[in-house]
């Protein structure tokens, strides 16, 4: 068991991050080095400045809001939630003053961010069971959502335990020790990480997160990087022209 914990918490994490960063970089380079589309792919009427509208399309999803308002609410909750969770994780490495502009205790959100993201994920998953999204979906779409749900639920459980059930053995300090040891390539597993009541939650959380990271570059999750360039095309950006 100990070995298994070790494999998941140390070497697999390195492999996962390696695949994630290198895989994503290689795939993006490959895509962006393709010849550019020779003509405009714009939808009219045109609105200026184009870059601002492209940003708005990418981050505010106005077309989803207009046509599927309920989906929009959950999509926004989900994506903003993920962003907050990423910030929360960065704070598990160390203090970042910039994130403390709004003072909060680590892990931010008092446990509610994880809750909201879990609920959003369930919504996103269950809507795929209904026609016509069911006919459109492919296994990848379910895998990603299930994986994310498992990651978030086990991750949040650790947070919830501390906050809501007064479970105090596993603390921010221990995460910081573990994570910064990984960062400095001197992996160290504090006793609290591997041998307390909630350790298996942590191990499962990390395990599923590893799987997700390794699948990311090869899946539709790449939309995180490709959405903006695509929306720029729709707003009328043409390579090699002045685009205002």
């Amino acid at each position: 068991m100990e070995t298994l914990y070790y494999i998941i918490l140390v070497p697999m994490v390195y492999v996962a991050f390696g695949v994630f960063f290198i895989g994503t970089a290689i795939r993006l380079i490959k895509i962006f080095r393709e010849p550019k589309h020779p003509t405009t792919l714009q939808i009219f009427p045109e609105k200026k400045p184009k870059w601002l509208w492209a940003l708005s399309d990418t981050f505010l999803l106005p077309t989803v809001r207009k046509h599927k308002p309920v989906l929009w609410v959950f999509l926004i909750l989900f994506h903003v939630g993920i962003l907050l969770l990423i910030i929360g994780h960065l704070e598990l490495f160390g203090e970042f003053e910039i994130f403390q502009i709004i003072p909060h205790e680590v892990f931010l959100g008092k446990g509610f961010v994880g809750l909201i993201v879990s609920i959003s994920l369930l919504y996103l998953l269950f809507r795929r069971f209904k026609s016509p999204v069911r006919e459109l979906s492919v296994p990848e779409d379910y895998y990603l959502l299930v994986l994310l749900f498992l990651i978030v639920i086990f991750g949040s459980q650790m947070d919830w335990a501390r906050r809501w059930y007064e479970y105090g053995e596993l603390d921010v300090e221990h995460y910081r020790m573990y994570l910064s040891s990984l960062l400095h390539f001197q992996p160290e597993l504090p006793y609290e990480i591997t041998d307390t009541g909630h350790s298996f939650m942590l191990v499962l959380h990390v395990f599923f997160a590893n799987l997700f990271l390794m699948f990311f570059p090869f899946s539709q999750s790449m939309h995180s990087f490709l959405s903006l360039p695509m929306n720029k095309l729709r707003r009328g950006f043409v390579y090699g022209q002045e685009n205002t």
Binding site: I31, F32, E34, P35, K36, H37, P38, L41, T63, V64, H67, K68, L71, P132, V133, L136, S137, V138, D141, Q220, M222, H223, L226, S227, P229, M230, L233
Partner: peptide, 21 residues
């Protein structure tokens, strides 16, 4: 046919179904 834009379109669809209607 595989240029940059085409790769975007082929990689990205999340099958969200917003285009249904």
């Amino acid at each position: 046919k595989l240029n940059e834009a085409m790769r975007f379109y082929l990689e990205t669809c999340t099958r969200c179904g917003v285009c249904t209607e």
